[in-house]
Design a protein around this nucleic acid. Structure first.
Lengths: 128, 128, 128, 128
DNA sequence: GTGGTCTAGACCACC
DNA sequence: GTGGTCTAGACCACG
């Protein structure tokens, strides 16, 4: 979780689940981590995870399996794969819009992109 | 203003003022628009503008001129120019981080960048 | 079983057993189906059936026969016949209450009653 | 609110709001009672009301008006009027289904309907 | 003042 | 064990 990026925690959880379904990190028909387990793992309140799971059910990504938890819905993979880049696109567009509206030149923003990308893959590849 | 991008309106106002100071759109010593005028222009509650101006004063970007309103502080230009790309950098980094953590490949995100950038300059250059 | 009608499955089982006792579908002194058998037949977890049987014992509808399972209690028929319409009455009253409190007219609700009743006897009589 | 009818409180609130919109008790464009006010009036926790209002927003019945609360959506009346009897229908059907499946005769259930209806209009009309 | 988020913890229904 | 509901109360963003 990345606090302070403006995205509520439950929403971040939703996004990560959708990414994981699209990536195959969460397999169709398999149970997702239980509310309590994921809450512990993310050091977050159980209700926050429950809220995320409830939203994901409403969106058809998760389906309840009575008494045993929640599982990835059969047709969730397709939807999540379609939305994978879309989720990033919306956020990226918002940043680029602010840059353009405030006179940031293309080479400036491209340089930012390159340096940040390099910096992040160095941090993420070892432990990712 | 771009509602729904996760940034509070008063914060968006702060950022735009700082950008404008850095760009020369707002000149040192000049008065900024009054709270009421800017509120009307942005179709936003006056208290929201007041909140933004209060924050900008606390940050030393604006200074009160007795009885006549607020003006751009003398040393604000330097700070704002230094922060100009930094404000974009932080948001961009957050997006790239999510992309990397969720397995978005470099060519995918670069393609997103290119298409979104092109799409935005078409929309913004005429009316920008 | 009718999931999603707000009544827990174990409670639905209890009700059906009481109805069956009242109807003569289950005869006094006769064994009821074993937990496992009924669970299989209803495609329900065995613990759920066990819970229903436990409640029915507590209510005096079923009595344990040493080593051989559960049977319908001697005085259960009278109680179940008395409760037969009562069980329906409570649920019906709750629906009518909501209708009245929210301005549903008598002819509207009567029309609903008629059409639903007709629709259901068509579906149920052949396979019931 | 009617506890013990199997419908969660937040769901009952949703239903009552939809009924009120259909009936004209809540007018399009008008604010609904604030979360805190309704919570006090119903003697219920504020979060429970907030949950109901959140669901109603997701269903397009309510729309947020920044900083001033929630209002009935423009096109909510049509939907709510269409769903008015449907909400009752589903519950009624469930009761009738149980009656039919368990051998309740038509005249028995009609008699129940009549007596309960009369009993309820006596209770509700004076204070309604 | 408004709604939204989050936490903490209790209780229930179900398996 | 699972998720769902509800309560209580804190804090934030916005007007």
């Amino acid at each position: 979780m990345n606090p302070g990026n403006g995205i509520p925690i439950y929403e971040q959880i939703c996004r990560q689940v959708r990414f994981a379904v699209a990536n195959g990190g969460l397999v169709v028909g398999e149970h997702v981590p239980s509310v309590r387990e994921l809450a512990t793992r993310l050091a977050v309140n159980a209700n926050t995870v429950a809220r995320a799971y409830r939203d994901l059910q409403a969106q058809g990504v998760l389906v309840p399996i009575r008494g045993t938890g929640l599982a990835v819905a059969l047709n969730a993979v397709k939807t999540c794969q379609q939305n994978r880049l879309e989720m990033i696109r919306v956020r990226l567009r918002s940043v680029l819009l602010e840059a353009i509206q405030n006179g940031v030149a293309e080479d400036e923003i491209r340089r930012l992109f390159d340096t940040e990308w390099k910096s992040l893959i160095l941090n993420c590849s070892p432990d990712g």
